[in-house]
Structures are given as C-alpha cells and as structure tokens.
Amino acid sequence: MMKPATPSQVRVVTFKINDRDVSARSDETILQVARENGIRIPSLCYVEGLSVWGACRLCLIELNGDSRLLAACSTRVEEGMEVLTDTDRLRRYRRMIVELLFAERNHVCAVCVSNGRCELQNLAQECGVDHVRVPYRTAVYHVDASHDWFRLDHNRCVLCTRCVRACDEIEGAHTWDTMGRGINCQVITDLAKPWGESKSCTGCGKCVQMCPTGALVRHGTSVGEMEKDRGFLPYLSRMREAEWE
C-alpha cells in the first residue's frame, strides 16, 4: 500500500485554503491541514491512520485556478498554493459522484442497520443529493453471514477498501482484498471464500468499525442500530509507526 513520498527535509509552509491563511508542515497533505483548521472537505475512502487510497475522488480540490483538479488526500502542501475546496464546479461534480455511488449498488437507507450513522448518507445530505438522476442498476448482490459475529452485505459496499487496508496495515492479517474489475469489482475474504471459513481472519472486527456504510456490520443489529467506533485507530496507527521508526 502506498504512502505519499516524504520530502527529505520537512519545512513549515504557509498557503491559502479558501482565502484563509494556514500554516503546515511540508510533509502534510492538503486534506490533513484542512481538517486541522476545521475546513470541511468531503471524503470517503480516506481515514487518518490508514494509507492513502485516492479512489473516491470526493476530496478533489481546485488549485491556483488551474482547471486540473487534485485529490486533497494525496497532494502535499506547498508554499504559496491557493486551494479552493468549495466552488460551484466541485459541488456539482461531488454530487454526481455520490449519485453514481447510490445508483451503483442497492443502498436502501430505510431498512439499513447503519441508517442515521452512515457516512454515505451524510455525504448525500451534505452534497444536496435529493434525488438520483442516473438510473439505478438494481443488480443482485449476495450477503455473506457465515462469520460468527459479523456480516458482509455487498449491496451496501462502496469499495472504499478501508476494510482491506485496516486488516492489512493495522491488524496485519490481510484477510480482505478485492477481485474482479470495473463494475464487477468486489471485496473478498481470503481467496473469495465465505468469511466464516476464512483461515486468516482473527475476528478482531476492525474492518467492521472502519466500514463507512452498512456493508460490514455486527450480527444482531437492527435498522439504525449499527454504531461504529473508530477510537482505536489513531492510537494503533501511532504505535505502529513508532514501532517502524
């Protein structure tokens, strides 16, 4: 899993986000600095403590009035850059991304255990998705309930791969991975075996806590009951980094 290249010497730089002056270490990314300063940039696949994936494309920002957009999660800050996080164009694009996600699989909030606690649902509200303009695919996806404690529902998966990364980088089990390509891409446990038969899964449940939607949940939860707790991640990832250093 990749991490952005670290510049050899870390300096302090100042630059602008939405016309506001901010300062940052030169090894930080735009998204990190924006969060430190309470500036909201929508994101889905990024989680502090896991490697950068750069796939949801919601955190794209405009830079110096350039027409090319950059992902805030994977772009390092530079002296004097002028970042715009909330232009009309970005709002329009982000809304379309969320709509595409809703139309891709079967996200039925009303019967979802994560209703009210779902990051995709929050993003839809934030981006003003009151209806979806593209046709729903309504493809059939299965549910894997073979694990003793947890359940995987492909209908709700947004392929952010947070589970894959948490399992690989924090737990060190690498039970999760992805298979297939394009629209047929999906997350798998071991070599596409039922989760309950997985030899590598330690049952730690970090993947479940990391999942932004109702794709990975605990057994026995009903509509709106699946609350996720990510408090462990910053601590564990700091410990991991200290160990490597």
Partner: peptide, 15 residues
C-alpha cells in the same frame, strides 16, 4: 477495462 478503483470511472463509464 476499468479497474474498478475510482468511482467516476467504475460507475460513470457503466452509466
């Protein structure tokens, strides 16, 4: 041929 990693390409090309 989309690899399925990013949302716009995976879901957008399908639409």
């Amino acid at each position: 041929e989309s690899c399925g990693k990013c949302v716009p390409c995976r879901a957008g090309t399908h639409q």
